[in-house]
Computed example of a mutant assay.
Amino acid sequence: MTEEPLPAAPEPETGGDPACWANRVCPACGAFNETPGTATCPTCGRNFGDLLDE
């Protein structure tokens, strides 16, 4: 009896999370903003534009 070779492993998927999420962390309270493109922090309500001027 001959053994058949095992099937090849699937190729890993490309993509995934970006390398840096720093632009989505509120500098005032440290909360993560799960909605990209919003102007205010969902936790503390601070305007991200106001925080850049400090």
Rank of each mutant, 00 (worst) to 15 (best):
M1S: 13
P18G: 12
M1Y: 03
D53Q: 11
T35Q: 13
E4L: 15
C44R: 04
T38V: 15
F32W: 09
L51V: 02
C41E: 04
E4R: 13
A19D: 12
T38F: 01
T38L: 03
A28Q: 10
E13I: 10
T43W: 02
A8G: 05
D50K: 05
L6Q: 11
E13M: 12
D50E: 15
D17R: 11
E13C: 02
T38K: 05
L51G: 02
P36Y: 11
A31K: 01
P42C: 04
G30D: 03
G49M: 11
A8H: 10
D17V: 01
G15H: 14
E3I: 13
N33M: 09
T43H: 06
E4P: 01
A8C: 04
T40S: 09
T35M: 06
E13D: 13
A28W: 00
N47H: 10
D50L: 08
A31Q: 06
G37H: 09
P5K: 05
L51M: 06
C26M: 03
A28N: 14
F48R: 03
T2F: 07
A28V: 03
L6K: 13
E11W: 01
P27I: 08
G37W: 04
A19G: 14
A9S: 15
P36F: 11
P7T: 07
R46L: 00
T43L: 01
G45A: 09
T2H: 05
P18Q: 14
C29R: 03
P27Q: 11
M1H: 10
E11K: 13
N23W: 07
T35L: 05
W21V: 06
G16K: 12
P36A: 06
P7L: 03
T14S: 15
P7M: 08
F32T: 10
C20Q: 06
L51C: 02
P42A: 09
D50C: 00
N33H: 11
T43P: 00
L6E: 13
T40L: 05
W21E: 10
A19W: 05
N47V: 00
F32Q: 09
E13S: 14
T43V: 01
A19F: 08
G15Q: 12
G30S: 07
G37V: 02
D50Q: 12
A28P: 00
N47S: 06
A19I: 07
P5G: 06
P42S: 11
G16M: 07
L52D: 15
P5I: 07
C26Q: 09
G49H: 06
G15N: 14
P42T: 09
T40Y: 12
A22R: 11
C41D: 04
T14N: 07
N33V: 12
T38E: 15
A39K: 10
E4S: 07
D17N: 04
L52W: 02
P10G: 07
C20M: 04
P12N: 03
E13L: 15
P27S: 11
G30E: 03
T38W: 02
P42Q: 05
F32C: 00
C44W: 09
E3Q: 14
T35D: 12
E13T: 10
W21S: 05
G30V: 05
W21A: 05
E54K: 07
A9P: 12
G16C: 08
R24M: 13
A19R: 06
P7Y: 06
P5F: 04
P7Q: 04
P12D: 05
T43I: 00
G16Q: 07
C26R: 04
E54V: 00
L52I: 09
E34P: 02
T43A: 09
F48H: 07
R24W: 14
